[in-house]
Design a protein around this nucleic acid. Structure first.
Length: 736
DNA sequence: GAGCACTGC
């Protein structure tokens, strides 16, 4: 590939007039009778950009009262310079006189740090009791915001201002302003249905439309219509979707807060391209030749495309900079399954006459911010998981992004200075894109939300105050799943088992496995396996060169796993990590080296231990059946009976995720008879001798794959079903 | 022969 690329792939750009990366807010600026107000308030600063790193702050926890106050008064000067301060009274008067306020402002407009403090001051002034909850979709955001705001407030983290996320709760009895993940607030709703400790609940980043935020919105609506008419609600969102939030809450007023961003010039392709990796590479080379220094962030749909782009770029970068006097391009991949060691490389600034080019998935769209980016190259594609209720199957699809998402991606070029965004599609195609991405709840398995609603005491789920109704079919499938797991009775009422399942921080299927394990006495071992399963990206993907080597090492370590599959392998790995390694002085480095050799995430394994600790505490409370003694015995051996017992526990939760071996050595699912293949990452990929398999996940990519696969005997199916529900029995019978 | 992104009393 040559640097001269004005050729047939159509990579010539038409310059568009300069436009802001953010969307114009006009559609909402009209005043109507129902929309009581429209305010445009300009911020000169952005909140999350000036957040200090948590590590640094934790070291400062020993600060004296006086120095805390001094720092707060320094910060107050900065805060007072924010234009939002001048509009404080107006904003507060709307919040005060309306049960629900929708506050529109971009991420980084200052709303997340300042508005909660205004409300806190008001609570102090009026000598009111109660506190404020601010929800965030991500843990890091909750932690960073609470840390910053506690400084501004002049208190230690956990005094008046604190945060609560899984495994980490800094709040105390003194805390009046609490930043928490939306999952945490839902947990609180399960325990304390009226949220009576809160005067005000703020839902931040509501435009991201995660399943959990959508659920919270539904719960809040039913609360203000029912037992908490006094509760104040503020929905904070980026510019779009304001009207949807407003309409949902009885035409709540919408306030606008503008954030400052730098101009981003938009470029489009003249003609569409059919090879997106090639187009991205060519675009980067072109930027490198014609543009000033500054890093490039490229959005590609998935790992496959990213690895390919990195490989190509590595090959041509040196050649290009040798031939012409341009910066040397240094390519980096970025995606969630990448080993953390490689992920951090992306953030280190580059020295010399070089240019960083980051090839990233959607992870860089909201979750991760990289400084130094001046150029964005957008493939216009992403991967989404879409749940098929009828098939119990997740499909992973590559689809065009929405306009909102395209704008979010472009905005990544304008965070520190003016930037440029290159969209590798035509402007006419951009205009055809949907305005918004489909909300997650519309394409997800809702078994877990349905269980939450049942536990909350909702009977008529179809007509509940869903912010987005996932549809009757999805709800009915959820109800049936829960009935089959024994969480609901024949009338759809939650059972004692269902109550226990709802309290465990696991998906219902895994909760049900845990309960079964406690009944038949293998809880400790099953907790270890479930803990591994509930950590994402524990087993990382080895690079192609070391793949065979790593697989060989894993196989040789896990004798039982080789025969019985991935669940047993996880337990074997856990046993080595937990019982054999890390006893000596160099425990940490010993464990890290071991993880590295097997391409296991050591951060992931630390999370496994935290999940395990939490599950053990919950189980002790729920079933009081964990035997603290004989801990060594909990290691798994190659005892056939013990392994069968453990796998049968899993079978009670995943009876519908089973397939039977055919004479031609393929597998067909028990429930639908569809062909299914063992995923190549599985221990059982090469094992062709299983009478049947059970899996925790069924994903369709190029074909239907079973992931986390275990060997099962066909007689077990009958055995489990005889002790199970009538519905499942019928399914097995009809599949024969 | 293959892996979008988050998250939980």
């Amino acid at each position: 590939m040559a640097a001269d690329n004005n050729n047939s792939t159509g990579l010539k750009y038409i310059i568009k007039k300069k436009q802001k990366a953010k969307r114009n807010v006009h559609p909402f600026q009209r005043d109507t009778k129902t929309k009581k107000v429209s305010k445009v308030i300009r911020f000169d600063d952005s909140d999350k950009d000036h957040l200090v790193s948590v590590e640094r702050l934790k070291g400062e926890n020993s600060l004296t009262y006086k120095s805390l106050k001094n720092r707060a008064s320094d910060l107050l000067k900065v805060r007072k310079a924010l234009p939002v301060y001048h509009h404080k009274r107006e904003i507060m008067s709307y919040i005060e006189s309306n049960p629900v306020t929708v506050l529109i402002g971009e991420t980084g407009s200052g709303k997340s740090t300042q508005i909660p403090q205004f409300i806190l001051e008001q609570l102090y002034d009026k000598k009111k009791h109660g506190s404020i909850a601010v929800t965030q979709p991500r843990r890091v955001a909750a932690i960073n915001l609470a840390t910053r705001v506690s400084q501004e407030h002049g208190c230690k983290l956990g005094d008046q201002v604190g945060y609560s996320v899984r495994f980490d709760n800094t709040t105390t009895a003194k805390t009046r302003l609490k930043y928490l993940t939306d999952g945490m607030l839902l947990r609180e709703l399960m325990m304390n249905r009226d949220l009576k400790e809160y005067n005000v609940v703020i839902i931040d980043e509501a435009h991201e439309r995660t399943v959990l935020t959508d659920l919270i919105l539904g719960f809040l609506k039913s609360l203000i219509k029912g037992s908490r008419p006094d509760l104040r609600i503020i929905v904070m969102s980026a510019t779009l979707q304001a009207e949807k939030f407003s309409e949902f809450f009885n035409n709540a007023p919408i306030l606008f807060v503008e954030g400052r961003k730098f101009d981003v010039t938009q470029y489009y392709l003249k003609a569409p391209t059919d090879d997106i990796v090639d187009a991205v590479i060519r675009c980067c080379i072109q930027i490198n030749q014609g543009e000033q220094l500054g890093d490039i962030l490229c959005f590609l749909p998935g790992q496959e495309e990213i690895d390919k782009a990195v490989t190509i770029m590595e090959k041509i970068a040196k050649y290009v900079s040798d031939e012409t006097p341009v910066p040397l391009i240094v390519p980096y991949p970025l995606y969630a399954a990448l080993p953390p060691m490689q992920q951090v490389l992306v953030f280190a600034p580059i020295k010399g006459f070089k240019r960083k080019v980051i090839f990233s998935t959607n992870i860089a769209e909201t979750s991760v911010t990289i400084s130094g980016v001046k150029f964005v190259v957008d493939s216009g594609l992403r991967k989404v998981k879409v749940w098929r209720h009828q098939l119990g199957l997740a499909t992973l699809l590559t689809v065009p992004i929405s306009q909102a998402s395209a704008m979010q991606r472009s905005g990544r070029a304008g965070r520190e200075s003016e930037g440029k965004s290159f969209r590798l599609y035509c402007e006419s195609d951009y205009l055809k894109l949907p305005e918004q991405s489909e909300p997650e709840i519309a394409r997800s398995d809702v078994t877990s939300p349905v269980l939450m609603l049942k536990r909350y005491g909702i009977n008529d789920l179809v007509n509940w105050s869903w912010f987005e109704n996932p549809g009757k079919e999805a709800i009915v499938m959820g109800l049936q799943e829960l009935y089959e797991l024994g969480a609901l009775d024949t009338r759809g009422k939650i059972t004692k088992r269902g109550e226990q399942m709802a309290l465990l921080p696991l998906q219902p299927h895994l909760s049900s496995v845990l309960i079964k394990a406690s009944e038949i006495g293998c809880l400790s071992q099953v907790i270890d396996i479930v803990s591994c399963l509930s950590v994402d990206n524990l087993l990382l993907n080895p690079s192609p060169e070391e793949r065979d080597e790593v697989n060989e090492r894993r196989l040789s370590l896990c004798n039982a796993g080789k025969r019985y599959g991935d669940l047993i392998m996880l337990k074997e790995l856990f046993d080595i990590y937990f019982y054999e390694l890390g006893k000596g002085q160099d425990s940490n480095s010993e464990r890290n080296d071991w993880c590295k050799g097997l391409c296991i995430s050591s951060r992931g394994f630390k999370n496994v231990i935290r999940v395990r600790d939490q599950l053990r505490v919950y189980c002790k409370r729920l079933f009081s059946s964990i035997d603290e003694e004989n801990e060594e015995v909990r290691k798994i051996g190659e005892d056939r009976d013990e392994i069968s017992k453990i796998l049968k526990c899993f079978l009670t939760g995943f009876i519908n995720n089973t397939a039977i071996g055919m004479p031609d050595r393929s597998y067909r699912t028990v429930s639908t008879g569809e062909p299914i293949s063992v995923h190549p990452s599985s221990m059982l990929f090469l094992n062709k001798s299983c009478p049947g398999i059970m899996y925790t996940e069924y994903v369709f990519t190029t074909k239907g794959y079973a992931r986390n696969v275990s060997r099962i005997e066909l007689s077990w199916l009958q055995e489990i079903v005889t002790s199970g529900t009538a519905v499942a029995k019928q399914k097995i019978a009809s599949s024969k």
